[in-house]
């Protein structure tokens, strides 16, 4: 695809990819509806299959719905009847309330935790992506000693479990008083996210048509300009996908936070885990708290679903 267009027109190159995606989607749509209508008769087997899908969908959604519904019911209502009763008697309005959220946000410090989580997550997403993009560009397109070895090393580090890193890093952190700091968290998440980020961005950046970069070089562009003006804008899709993955990974992380950040300053996951420990049966607190922690990931999921799926795929396949 890339050779046909040469380096003169990057837009055409991207447009073609979009067009191809559209064709694939169209094809999928047609084949789906074709089968749907041609085999309309309802056999027993088909009924069983539909029932199976229905059961799966219910099991995959009802538990979450239960937590959402409960978080909106008064503590008394939660303890009196199951949450489904609340739905059956939807119009008994005295059971609905927002006070649970008010309570967890203020009394249980979830508001503070939410801010702290953001403050950890945003830099812990931007820093590894920046570092990885620079490194990936350098490995893919610049000449220097040891680039092969470096790349092999990065790929090798992909499979080292996080657990292998925790104790020695904690020892260093403790010695220099870095535990419990935002800086320490950013860098820790950067370190643990870097192999994957570099690997993914390398895959994308190295597939940029050679002619584009060569013409930039011929025009006298420095590596810095080539990278910031050309490579980075072209890599936006890969960056967006990985950014979503990393953002959610850090947002949802409990282990790194417990080890390096502690619980003196709350973040959503550690705070929530603490609440489970101290108030494990206080469902009005737990359900509302859980939803506060889930609202941002779910928003991202429903608004950026395509990037989200792509990001999770990219993140997990090589994990």
């Amino acid at each position: 695809m890339s050779e046909k267009n040469g380096g003169s027109n990057t837009q055409g190159w991207q447009l073609q990819a979009v067009e191809r995606q559209r064709q694939i989607r169209k094809h999928a749509a047609e084949s789906g509806s074709f089968l749907g209508s041609a085999r309309a008769e309802m056999t027993l087997g088909k009924l069983a299959v539909r029932l199976f899908v229905l059961v799966i969908v219910l099991v995959w959604t009802l538990p979450t719905l239960g937590v959402l519904v409960s978080s909106l019911r008064t503590p008394a209502a939660i303890n009196a009847t199951g949450w489904w009763q609340g739905l059956f008697r939807f119009f008994e309005f005295e059971q609905w309330t927002l006070s649970n959220y008010r309570h967890v946000l203020s009394a249980d410090r979830m508001d503070h935790a939410f801010f702290n989580s953001l403050l950890i997550t945003i830099p812990a997403t931007v820093i590894p992506i920046s570092m990885a993009a620079f490194a990936a560009f350098s490995i893919a397109w610049l000449r220097f000693h040891g680039r092969e070895i470096l790349f092999v090393m990065i790929v090798g580090l992909l499979v080292v479990p996080l657990q292998m890193a925790l104790i020695p890093v904690l020892q260093v952190y403790t010695r220099y008083g870095i535990t419990g700091t935002f800086f320490g968290m950013w860098l820790a998440h950067t370190g643990f996210g870097l192999p994957l980020a570099t690997y993914i961005l390398y895959g994308y950046i190295s597939s940029i048509p050679k002619s584009i970069l060569e013409s930039a070089h011929a025009d006298g562009a420095t590596p810095w300009l080539t990278f910031t003006r050309l490579v980075l804008p072209l890599s936006i899709p890969a960056i967006a996908s990985f950014a979503i993955f990393q953002f959610l990974w850090v947002w949802n992380d409990l282990l790194v936070a417990l080890v390096f950040f502690g619980t003196r300053q709350p973040i959503v996951t550690t705070r929530l885990a603490e609440l489970v420990g101290s108030r494990g049966h206080t469902w009005y607190v737990l359900t509302a708290g859980a939803f506060v922690s889930m609202v941002l990931p779910l928003l991202i999921f429903f608004s950026l679903q395509r990037y989200f799926v792509r990001g999770m795929m990219a993140g997990a396949v090589k994990g």
């Binding site: 995959w60 959604t61 979450t64 959610l248 947002w251 949802n252 992380d253 409990l254 959503v268 996951t269 929530l272 885990a273 489970v276 859980a290 922690s293 889930m294 990931p297 779910l298 991202i300 999921f301 989200f308 999770m312």
Partner: peptide, 9 residues
């Protein structure tokens, strides 16, 4: 959808 939810959640 559960992929968006943290393990804690």
């Amino acid at each position: 959808m559960p992929m968006a939810i943290s393990f804690v959640g």
